[in-house]
Structure formats: C-alpha cells, structure tokens
Write a protein that binds this DNA or RNA. Structure first.
Lengths: 174, 174
DNA sequence: AATGTAAGTAAGTAATTGCTTACAAATGTA
DNA sequence: TACATTTGTAAGCAATTACTTACTTACATT
C-alpha cells in the first residue's frame, strides 16, 4: 500500500463516518486526501469498492479485540467484557464505529451478520452461567450494547461516559 | 393540505427513512408520489424544507405520546413507560423513527435537543424515587432506550421483540 | 540500459442533481 | 360571470455526480 492509497482510505473513512456515504463525493475525497480523483478508481474500482476497502480495514483492526474476549477463562467476565465493549473503543477507532452504526440504518448496506459472532459468544457464556433463556438474555444484552455504542459515539461531548460505565457496573457487578 | 401534498410527505418519509436523505433524489420522490418534481419545490421550497416538513409531521404524532407519560401519577410507572417506549411504537410510525435514528449519525442533521424532554421526565421521576444519582441513572436508561429502539426498528424480523420485552420486565419489575 | 508494470494525473464523459421558469388548470370569492 | 389565488405541470437550467480516457512518471527486473 502506497502513501496515497492510505490517504484515500483514511479521508474516506473520516468523511463517510461524519457525513454518510451518499453525502460525500469522490471529488471531495480526492481533494481532502490530496490526490487526483482518478486514483480512487484505479485502486478501488468504484465508490462502493472504496467503502468496502474502508470497512475491511476497520474489521481487521477490530477482530483481535473480539478474539481476546473469547480467550477469557471466566464466563461472567466474558459477558461483562462484551457489555462494556463500547466504553473501551479507542478514540482512533471512533470513525470506523460511527460508520458501522450509520450504515445500519441504510437499507442498501445493512448487514445483520456482523454482530452474530458477538452474540454467539454471549449465548455460550450465558448458557454456562445456567441462564434459563440464554438466547433472550443475549438479545437483551446486545440491545444494551447497541445503546451504549450510540451514546459513546454520539454523545461523548455532552455526557460523562466514564460515569455512565460506573453506574452500569454498580448494577451488574457485586 | 391537498392529496398530492400528503403523497409527497408520505413517500419522502418512506424513502428518506429507508435509504437516507442524500441517497434519495427529488426526482425519485416525485415519481413515486405520482406528482411533478416542481410541485415539491412549490410546497416545500427545497429538499431540506421537505425533510423538515416530514420531521414536523412525525413530531406532531409523537408529542401526545410523551404527554400521556407525564400524566402518569406513579413515578416508577413513568420510568417504566419511558424504558419500554420503543416496544410500543406502532408499526405505522416505524418509518418516522427510523428516519430520526438514521439522521442522528449524520453530522449535518444531528439534533441532541430532541431527547432532552424525555430525559427531564426521567431525572424528575428518579429523583422522586430517591435515586442517589438520578442524572447518571437517567443517562443509563436513555442508553437502554436507544438500544431497544435500534433493535425494534432494525431487527424486528430476525428477533422476537415481544420476548425481549418480557425478559426486560423480569429484570425491572418485581 | 532496456523494458514491462504499477502509480499517478488532467481533462474529459454522459447522466443526474436540486432547483427555476413559463404556463395551464383548478378553485375560491365578489 | 369575472377575477384573483392556489395548485399543478413540462421543459429546461447550471452544477455536480461517478467514472473513463489518454497520457506521464516512478520503480522494479533482467
């Protein structure tokens, strides 16, 4: 990967996540990245190809995070880790997660499969913890996580997310 | 309001909420609504004006819902009603709520003020219920609600929302 | 040094964008 | 009936869209 290729990917991520895929033109991306517009199409075929490359780059950064959770020996700790996931997103990964969540709401790009591995970990852990209905419990926690992610990614300026995590922990950790 | 004006508003709501504001052209809206494109601009000045009118229409349908919650005499019931809000959205109001939530993720349209009245009700109720930190508790519940809304609006086909509500109630209602 | 390949650009392309204009039909009001 | 206003349309507008073409520059391999 050349410098300009990286520049295109990074500015595209930044712009897509802040304004949305359709609101950003390839012309703008090229200008902000300091490259010619044609280069985008040389490297990524078309605009959707660029989006896919941006997503791929993000996923590769995220996968190890989930892998490290699977390795936790304590089931309860695994559940806790997933529930607190949004609070431990590094600032540098915010644009990627904002992109994920904004694309959720657009029919053309909605991908239900992405969250499945996370839910599977939850169901397995909750079953081990003898929950009567592990699946329903997992769905509930997945909803929580979506809510926490929304708050962390959109309201970090207006609300104290550290305190939010503290309040959450008081409820679930004895 | 004429029939065609209503047709424009309804198709715009449907298209905006499914594909996003920038992904939908005024040309498409006009075609789907069965009117000339010019009529959109006659009635709503410009595309953003149309979006505002769509939002206004939705808000007017939603406000009475919040008003009826305020009138509940029991503080705990008020908290419960807000927490369960997403589960009681009528199917006919899904497009409006999907639009609200999708716009949240676009910088140009993000409006933090919209959820404030709801949070205020929560803080007041939780204070009455003698919560030590009513504000933090309210923020947590607001996060829950965002998560439930996301689930209900996006995953109603793949998960059982009735069961989700049941599981939630087992946790919070004794 | 010669040559093939990848990286990069400038200047286009047709199609679509949001929006305007000029005019006609419908509707209300005296 | 006459006239004013609102509702509606068809055709066109400049600007922008995603994408292509024709070309040059840089770099690796023999």
């Amino acid at each position: 990967m050349t410098d300009k290729q990286v520049a295109i990917l990074q500015t595209a991520l930044e712009l897509f996540s802040n304004k949305g895929f359709y609101a950003v033109s390839t012309n703008l991306i090229a200008k902000e990245a300091g490259v010619s517009e044609g280069l985008i199409f040389r490297h990524f075929q078309n605009k959707v190809g660029l989006l896919n490359a941006v997503m791929q780059m993000g996923k590769e950064k995220v996968e190890p995070l989930l892998a490290s959770i699977i390795e936790l020996p304590d089931s309860a700790k695994r559940v806790q880790a997933i529930m607190e996931l949004p609070f431990h997103i590094g600032e540098q990964d915010y644009p990627f997660w904002r992109l994920i969540y904004s694309l959720k709401w657009q029919n053309d790009f909605y991908d239900d499969e992405m969250s499945k591995p996370t839910k599977d970990i939850l169901v397995k852990a909750l079953t081990e913890l003898k929950y009567a209905d592990a699946d329903a419990e997992a769905d509930l926690i997945m909803s929580y996580v979506d809510g926490f992610a929304t708050t962390v990614l959109l309201k970090r300026d207006s609300i104290n997310t550290a305190k939010l995590l503290e309040t959450l922990r008081k409820k679930y950790i004895q």
